[in-house]
């Protein structure tokens, strides 16, 4: 029998190793898996590389993981925000390494990682500082930059509904990176608001097929943004 449901978040992250690469879903607060991040902080893994669109907001979620000193390097597109003071301080005091990636390249690199693509040529960033040192090619009169895949040891994402096979639906703009990151990690853990019996999810509405999901944790009550 296939049952991917974990009773608690900490149990779902027990095998995260020091030095692991963690893909963390979310765009700002929408889709950020706060419960899983809190569990990762409690679990204690250090020296992490985190791949996420932003570098944390306020003092909760990803910002709390950064503040706990667990992250060596962050790969993201938009670290600087009105409430990114935790990251700002770490960056200015050189306590964290930043790899800045244009947002479309970030998601496409993760998609490539999940889709078995070796590398891809993108027009985004050509001729800019973010493409310095990278291989380029002219194809049909247009210039492209070669970008390589990103894969994670773990992906932590937030979804709306699941079943015990790990099929997922999402809620509004909380979907963002979730379906892509789910495909690109050795172990994908999804926190969900609701677990339904097998067969209760309309198969036409499944956004992430369970093949990309290894563990599901049902959370209780409010978790960060949204519901």
């Amino acid at each position: 029998m296939i049952d991917k449901i974990y009773s608690d978040a900490l149990a779902s992250l027990q095998d995260v190793q020091d030095g692991a690469t963690i893909l963390i879903g979310g765009f700002g607060g929408a889709g950020m898996p706060h419960t899983l991040i809190d569990a990762l902080i409690a679990q204690g893994a250090r020296d992490l590389t985190v791949v996420s669109n932003n570098a944390g907001n306020g003092t909760t979620g990803l910002a709390a993981l950064l503040a706990a000193g667990r992250v060596r390097k962050i790969v993201c597109s938009f670290p600087r925000q009105a409430d990114s003071f935790v990251f700002d301080e770490l960056y200015r005091s050189k306590k964290i390494e930043l790899e800045l990636v244009p947002q479309g390249n970030l998601v496409e690199r993760i998609r490539a990682g999940g889709a078995g693509i070796g590398a891809f040529f993108t027009p985004t960033g050509y001729g800019t500082a973010l493409a310095e040192g990278k291989e380029t090619r002219e194809i049909d009169g247009r210039n492209y930059v070669l970008e390589y895949p990103i894969r994670g040891d773990f992906a932590l994402i937030k979804a709306e509904q699941s079943d015990r096979w790990g099929n997922l639906t999402y809620r509004m703009t909380a979907r963002n990176f979730g379906p892509i990151m789910a495909s690109a990690a050795k172990t994908t853990v999804a926190q969900v608001a609701e677990v339904l019996p097998l067969g209760a999810l309309n198969p036409e509405n499944v956004v992430t097929p369970g093949i990309f999901v290894d563990r599901v944790v049902k959370i209780e009550g409010q978790d960060g943004a949204g519901r």
Partner: peptide
Amino acid sequence: GDLINAGKQPVTLLQGGCFFDHSTSF
């Protein structure tokens, strides 16, 4: 909080509007 724009501000969805993942968006 699940319905925000690129500036992370709350927005609404018009009739006929839809949601999609980041790969589709880019």
